[in-house]
Amino acid sequence: MAFLEIRNITKRFAGQAALEDVSADIDKGEMVCVLGPSGCGKTTLLRIIAGLETADSGSVYIDGGDCTSQPPGKRNFGIVFQSYALFPNMTVSDNIMFGLHRRRGLGREEMRARVDDVLGMVDLLEHRNKYPRQLSGGQQQRAALARAIAPAPSYLLLDEPLSALDAKVRVRLRGEIRGIQRALGITAVMVTHDQEEALTMADKIIVMNNAAVVQTGTPREIYDRPATPFVANFIGFMNFYPAPEGVCAIRPERIELTGATDGCDMVAEIKGFEFKGAVTRIHGVLPRQTEICVDVASEKADALDVRASDRMYLRIPKEHLLRYPASAAI
């Protein structure tokens, strides 16, 4: 039995479905990312797991117990919001202390020790007496994380925790959050719309679209075997082209460039080059005006010596080729 079980949750706001019969299982100690475009219902799902929102129907089980109608305070979780929601009138350690009230008979000294503990984990010990406004965005995020884990919750909820941060800080914090989650062995559910974040951080990804779960799996499964064209296109980039029996899809980095004669599957006319640093994306057009992209390592692209309106010869490895019925929407 999974640690967190979500069973057939439906939730509507003013008639508009936010969640439609959503189910998911989350195992103990797992880091699960709920990934989807904005408005897909992922935040509502998180808030229902937290008890901050009540489902119209369906149930939530935590550790085998039905907690569908439990208020948030009884569920024993920690939560980090995109806005951090740090109390601006309290120092970092007061923010953490705020949630440590009379918790399981902790004395004043033990509470202080606990604050030091979590501040050490997020590396904020020397900033303990600062107010949130005196901290950088990344530090505020870490303070919010410390506050969330201080009461030793049995699971952690993260609502777009990194979206408000600079790209560099975001990448570093991914690793830090993941590290702390692993060290504590705590079950975590993170909501994000950033596919890279989900791929790098998650043990398991739940992809949502239009109030429903589209696919659940490990990052590799989601990336290599997307269940629908939507998932394929939402995570990374995907080439689609028509085939007799439906639609074929292939990742641009899976396509191999060959010489004109040996084992080429398709011929495309080169339209342009997009230098992306380590790789260069070659944009091309297949006959019947279907666009296709091929990613090659930049040094290889230099060696190729091709230019626009030249032809390129493509080999499509069968093991990486995906097929979808023609009716599937992209």
Partner: peptide
Amino acid sequence: LDREFESVSDSMSV
């Protein structure tokens, strides 16, 4: 005020 202040407090059973 951040509307999540209440959510955070609830989560910590304050």
